[in-house]
Design a protein around this nucleic acid. Structure first.
Lengths: 154, 154
DNA sequence: TATTGTTATACTCTATAACTATA
DNA sequence: TATAGTTATAGAGTATAACAATA
């Protein structure tokens, strides 16, 4: 008795709040992605840094912080760990010796690729309810609201 | 020199990862929503519980936990605080005296309505780049991936 | 003077286990 | 036996301030 009936809540108008939906979708995504990454010794945040390092864009730590919505001090800790494991390197920018470009080692690039495949497979299973073009539409809309003028931030 | 150039990162293929986009969009949403809620003494999580309580769906704490992707013990703390402030009540279910229905008081319902208006206004400003039908499409897609069989979870 | 990375610290959020009272 | 709520605790994630090196 008194078994859980989420339909009542999900049918309620407040359940359609975009921010709430985003939070719930992200919580599901993080849980599933962390599970998919566990065997690689990665979590969503360390994977994000590793994938960025493997992207050949040579981001600085500051750029990683802005892009991933992390504090610069968090990037220090994440890069420290990946560097200690030999997955990324800090390369001092000759043009600005304060800045470190974060680049993946060969090992790091290989691990990033395997982790990315695992994440993609988990996502396909999890989002099977969406047609490919619906997932593409969702991705494009998210990119639109995320890749905006950062100067608009508070 | 070495000024931040996010375009490189945002143009990279890994930046189109749906999970990463979701995480970034959610981080932005939480920051903006918390700012909009600050003057009400609420944060995203306490607002979510209050709004659910004001929705006339009479959720139990267990239902709130499942719906909001919170641990039941977190719901205890959030309801405690809202109850202490006179915004919600715990009503014991006569049919199952273990279960508490969480319902908003008149004060709680009024605050929820004001907070909701502030959130909506902040969202409109923040997501002005999206046409109304695009926001509707985004909301609908998020609802599709969130309101699914919970039994599929790991 | 301003910025990059760093350290230290505190705070918020999340996850786990054990307990009680009811079923 | 199982479930709703509770307590306690630890771990992960986030935010702030101050500092050294460099611009």
């Amino acid at each position: 008795m008194a078994q859980i009936q989420l339909e009542r809540l999900e049918g309620s108008p407040f359940a359609a709040d975009p921010g709430l939906l985003l939070a719930r979708a992200n919580a599901d995504s993080i849980a599933a992605t962390n599970a998919a990454l566990a065997s690689f010794g990665l979590r969503v945040r360390s994977y994000a840094v590793l994938a960025a390092a493997a992207s050949a864009t040579r981001p600085t730590q500051r750029e990683l912080a802005e892009f991933l919505r992390l504090d610069p001090s968090q990037v220090v800790a994440l890069v420290d760990e990946l560097e200690r494991r030999g997955l990324v390197r800090r390369e001092v920018d000759p043009a600005d010796r304060r800045a470190n470009a974060i680049v993946a080692t060969a090992d790091g690039a290989a691990l990033s690729a395997r982790a990315n495949a695992a994440i993609a497979e988990a996502r396909e299973r999890r989002l099977a309810a969406l047609a490919p073009e619906e997932l593409a539409a969702l991705t494009e809309l998210l990119a639109r609201i995320v890749n905006r003028e950062r100067s608009n931030s508070q």
